[in-house]
Design a protein around this nucleic acid. Structure first.
Length: 722
DNA sequence: AAACTCCCCCTTTTT
DNA sequence: GGGGGAGTTT
């Protein structure tokens, strides 16, 4: 059998992972070592050599995007032979299972998924009912408490056993537990599942139904997991139970790229895996195909500062490449301008803007950079704003669809009963809620009854009847017309389209376009599950926030946080804001574990760069309206000086003579200027030195000229002592 | 129901 | 500094 298309162009470690016999395997895949490739080729190999049917393959990823990419690559390799494979995120797979086995999972057939938005609203309402002071216990905190409990596999009744409930946290724990309990009860009563619940429920489904579990264990002949270092407790538990003793797990991950500990990811799962499957094979992918040797060695040196690593040394056959530039900016404006000028230089010498990425620790840093790019006419694109399904107009439209599908969806009803405003105010809504609560019925039923029994004012009754009419008419239509026609009708009848497009400005225009895009998305939508198209589309929208609908295909510079850069690569990378307090972030400094995660984050950032890496920091930065003077990030200090070159101001013109070989930390003298000294500047004329700051080539002095005082960078401004 | 004002907070983000 | 939420005014 010819398997060369599967094995060609693989290195020996990759080949080992691809062709390994069917038994548990851990693939430690360094940055840029071809991990997706290995996963895809392994599946192809198993199907070819082990005659595995696509039916027997389960592949789990973290994001829908990753799932789609992997599916696409498998199809490219195998064509239609891959049909029937189970591919998806933990959540989408759990959803699929629960839909198929809702009875065994003790769920109503029409259970609904709620997103974090709905969840938060619900928690707020419950806190009101319980009369828990929102200012004392912020609802967001309660939400976090519930979600992390679920991520750890703990139900409301179990939170006490988890952490030795002593100390001054009693009140906190008591309040949170009460909220969790009430929330859990409400969700159960109404058939609502939040994201954590999907996982917890399907884990319990395995435990409670041994036969069902056996069925899936005999069905799946292999389970592959991507980004394994990001799994949390419940995800790993789910995997382990499903795999049992029979189904071999192939897990791929990189302990050095675990950057989601703060949301429950357990890097320890990698070690746990090796303990749980003592016979597991370990393959290290250490050859890097992405970065220059300089970038790689520098990254290796940085990450070596972390303890308890599984150990991995990336290497490359590629070229040394250029040194890593370090630019010490005067302030954040200067930093941003430097980026823009450097980018212009790159483009002038024939580079593409889309090959450039700016990576920062926190979103707040993007604004100054954007302003500078706008000024310099550098087109850019920001990742990580609101995603498609998160936009208000889309959420409103979806809420109408949800009501058409299932009128007893309280969260949806609350959202749009008065959108567009039709005279159902807070008072009326409170009436409705109260009536629903007392009779243990849905808000929809409450409205029906109140309108019938004239339990509300005439005006409200008219408004509510109007609202019900919209939903009734659409409900009748839904089985007769296509999904996209239904969406069109809904946008029209509900008045949403007019409402969102009312103003005559760009924003309104964009909202209308988004709504039209929603119609588009439903046009050739084909549900996989055995659900109605409407039901399937609603579930999908909840589970997949959708790509950033940027739409522009213009050649753009990419701006994003370090977190969203994971998995991507760019020829030119700017890693900005390398200051103590910002990166590493001040909130992570005390705990060693958090600090190591910050270091991994830096490692992830550096290893995104293919050809050229530029690190920048600002000696002064305005943050929260205050100027801060932070020292250079420890991460720069941890990179051996040999890989770095400090860039002087003006060097963005990129002529070699502008570079100066030195440590960014070199302590040079300030050039012999002292306060009160008279100096002459080419442009500003004569002046008096009134203050000095900083060291080395970036030391600067403030000089009082006749036209006012100026800050001058010593190495740049040629000052003459008089 | 929109407009306005005050006050608080301020990593990272997917499902 | 500035955005968002809650509460208050018109």
């Amino acid at each position: 059998m010819d398997v060369s298309h599967i094995l060609d162009n693989l290195n020996s470690a990759q080949r080992e992972a691809v062709t390994a016999p069917l038994s548990p395997m851990l693939v430690l895949a360094g940055a840029g070592s071809g991990k997706t490739r290995v996963l895809v080729h392994r599946i192809a190999w198993l199907m070819t050599m082990e005659s595995m049917s696509p039916h027997s393959v389960l592949a789990v990823t973290f994001t829908n995007k990753a799932a789609r990419e992997m599916r696409g690559r498998i199809e490219a390799l195998l064509g239609s032979a891959s049909r029937g494979m189970w591919f998806g995120t933990f959540h989408s797979l759990a959803h699929r299972l629960l839909r198929a086995h809702w009875r065994d999972a003790d769920l109503p057939e029409n259970f609904q998924i709620i997103d974090s938005d709905d969840q938060l609203r619900l928690i707020k309402r419950i806190m009101k009912e319980l009369q828990i002071d929102e200012s004392k216990w912020p609802p967001r905190q309660a939400q976090g408490f519930i979600n992390s409990a679920k991520d750890d596999g703990r139900r409301a009744g179990q939170v006490h056993d988890a952490k030795g409930g002593k100390g001054g946290h009693d009140l906190y724990l008591k309040a949170m537990t009460a909220i969790y309990q009430a929330y859990e009860a409400y969700c159960n009563r109404s058939g609502l599942l939040d994201f954590g619940e999907l996982l917890l429920r399907s884990h319990e489904l395995w435990l409670r139904n041994p036969e069902l579990l056996r069925h899936y264990q005999s069905r799946f002949k292999v389970i592959l997991v991507d980004e394994f270092q990001d799994t949390n407790t419940i995800q790993y538990a789910w995997l382990r139970v499903l795999a049992g003793q029979e189904v071999p797990l192939t897990v791929v991950g990189d302990d050095d790229q675990s950057i989601y500990g703060w949301r429950g990811a357990r890097i320890e799962n990698i070690q746990q895996f090796q303990q749980d499957f003592a016979n597991s094979r370990l393959v290290r992918l250490e050859q890097n195909y992405r970065s220059t040797r300089t970038i790689l060695d520098a990254s290796n040196a940085l990450i070596a500062g972390n303890s308890g690593r599984l150990g991995k040394q990336l290497w490359t056959e590629g070229e040394d490449g250029e040194p890593i530039d370090v630019y010490a900016a005067f302030n954040e404006q200067d930093e941003a301008n430097y980026l823009a000028e450097r980018m212009q230089g790159w483009v002038e010498s024939g580079g593409l803007r889309q090959d450039i990425a700016v990576l920062y620790r926190s979103n707040a840093q993007s604004r100054v950079i954007e302003e500078s790019l706008l000024r310099h006419n550098v087109p850019y694109r920001i990742y990580g704003g609101l995603r498609f399904y998160d936009r208000a107009e889309i959420k409103n439209a979806l809420a109408y669809l949800r009501l058409v599908h299932f009128a007893h969806d309280d969260a949806a009803l609350e959202r749009v009963v008065n959108v567009p405003a039709r005279g159902v105010g807070a008072k009326t809504l409170e009436n409705i809620r109260e009536h629903a609560r007392q009779n243990a019925i849905s808000l929809w039923q409450a409205i029906e009854q109140l309108v019938e029994s004239k339990g509300v004012s005439a005006r409200a009754r008219k408004s509510l009847a109007e609202f019900m009419g919209i939903i009734y008419r659409l409900t009748e239509l839904k089985s007769e017309i296509s999904l996209s026609e239904l969406v069109k009708q809904m946008l029209d009848e509900s008045g949403l389209l007019d409402f969102h497009g009312a103003e005559k400005n760009d924003k309104a225009q964009a909202r209308v376009e988004n709504l039209e895009e929603l119609i588009n998305a439903t046009k050739d939508y084909e549900p996989e599950e055995n659900l109605t198209p409407l039901a399937a589309f609603i579930a999908q929208a909840a589970l997949d926030a959708g790509e950033n609908q940027a739409g522009e295909h213009e050649d753009c510079v990419q701006l994003m946080t370090l977190h969203s850069a994971k998995g991507l690569e760019f020829p030119l990378v700017f890693l900005v804001g390398l200051e103590e307090g910002l990166f590493p972030h001040s909130l992570s400094v005390e705990e060693p574990g958090r600090m190591e995660e910050e270091r991994r984050l830096c490692y992830v950032g550096m290893t995104r760069a293919m050809k050229k890496l530029v690190l920048t920091y600002a000696e002064s930065r305005r943050l929260y309206g205050q100027d801060q003077f932070n020292s250079v990030s420890r991460f720069i200090r941890e990179v051996p000086v040999a890989f770095l070159q400090e860039v002087r101001i003006g060097s963005c013109l990129s002529s070699a003579s502008d570079f100066q070989q030195s440590s960014p930390l070199a302590q040079n003298d300030t050039g012999g200027f002292s306060l009160g000294q008279r100096v002459r500047h080419q442009k500003f004329g004569e002046g008096v030195v009134i203050s000095c700051e900083g060291q080395g080539p970036h030391s600067r002095i403030q000089v009082n000229f006749s036209e006012g005082s100026k800050w001058l960078v010593l190495s740049y401004a040629k000052l003459e002592v008089i």
